[in-house]
């Protein structure tokens, strides 16, 4: 596993989302999976996404897998909420303090509004979408009464988050004039790219693993 991390350090982020300690010693991937009670299939599917290839696409994942996917996604929510966005926010604040131009003030405002939207979306997933999936995956037969929600509806939700992040990047890369301050600006860019990458994987996991499985289960139950 250590070799794999050497090959793609972004896998650290994946380990963290799986709540796996970084000190992997000489353990192989298989041993690590056993130790943490994660199925090899699930681990590989997600690792492949981080390595830039598809999941391999064969369903089905077991219910236990899917519950772990939800934990994984929740953990990445915390990474966005408490780590990445605050970090970016701090960089932008610093930039704004260094450069009193009004444009940057506007950029900060743009970011803060965006961050609020993101938080609302994350809360929505944590409070509405995930509980829905957890009920769906529950052992006791899920009754179809009051089905206020469905897997497909869930997939419509998160394009906006990625769009505005792109806007932010484009504004900084193409339009807003800032003199010097390259260190700070590079750090900001790197954070934005890291965030973009993880958000991208995040939505891939939702779209290729969670939602199709959810749709399958819904179909089963409706039969």
């Amino acid at each position: 596993m250590a070799d794999l991390i050497d090959g793609n350090p972004y896998l650290l982020l994946m380990l963290q989302h799986f709540n796996i300690d970084f000190r992997v010693s000489d353990r192989t991937l298989l041993q690590l999976c056993h130790q943490y009670g994660i199925s090899e299939r699930l681990f590989l599917s997600i690792a492949n996404l981080y390595n830039g290839s598809g999941t391999g696409g064969e369903q089905p994942f077991t219910r236990k897998d899917l519950l772990q996917v939800i934990d994984f996604l929740k953990s990445s929510h915390n990474y966005y909420r408490f780590d990445k966005y605050p970090q970016i926010s701090a960089y932008i604040r610093q930039l704004q303090e260094n450069h009193p131009e009004k444009e940057l003030k506007l950029l900060e405002k743009f970011f803060n509004e965006y961050f609020t939207e993101v938080r609302e979306h994350l809360d929505y997933e944590d409070e509405v979408a995930f509980p829905y999936f957890i009920t769906l995956l529950g052992d006791d037969k899920y009754k179809n009464d009051r089905q206020v929600y469905s897997s497909r509806e869930y997939s419509d939700h998160h394009t906006d988050i990625e769009l505005k992040l792109k806007d932010l990047k484009n504004l900084l890369l193409k339009y807003i004039t800032i003199d010097n301050d390259l260190d700070l600006r590079r750090k900001l860019f790197m954070s934005l790219y890291e965030l973009e990458f993880d958000l991208y994987i995040h939505s891939l996991i939702e779209e290729t693993i969670l939602i199709p499985s959810g749709v399958d289960i819904e179909r089963e139950q409706n039969e």
Binding site: E103, L106, L107, K109, F110, E113, Y114, L163, K164, K166, D167, L168, N170, L171, K174, Y175, I176
Partner: peptide
């Protein structure tokens, strides 16, 4: 390359 209204303002 900018899609949101607030981004376009900037």
């Amino acid at each position: 390359g900018i899609r949101s209204q607030s981004g376009l303002t900037i």
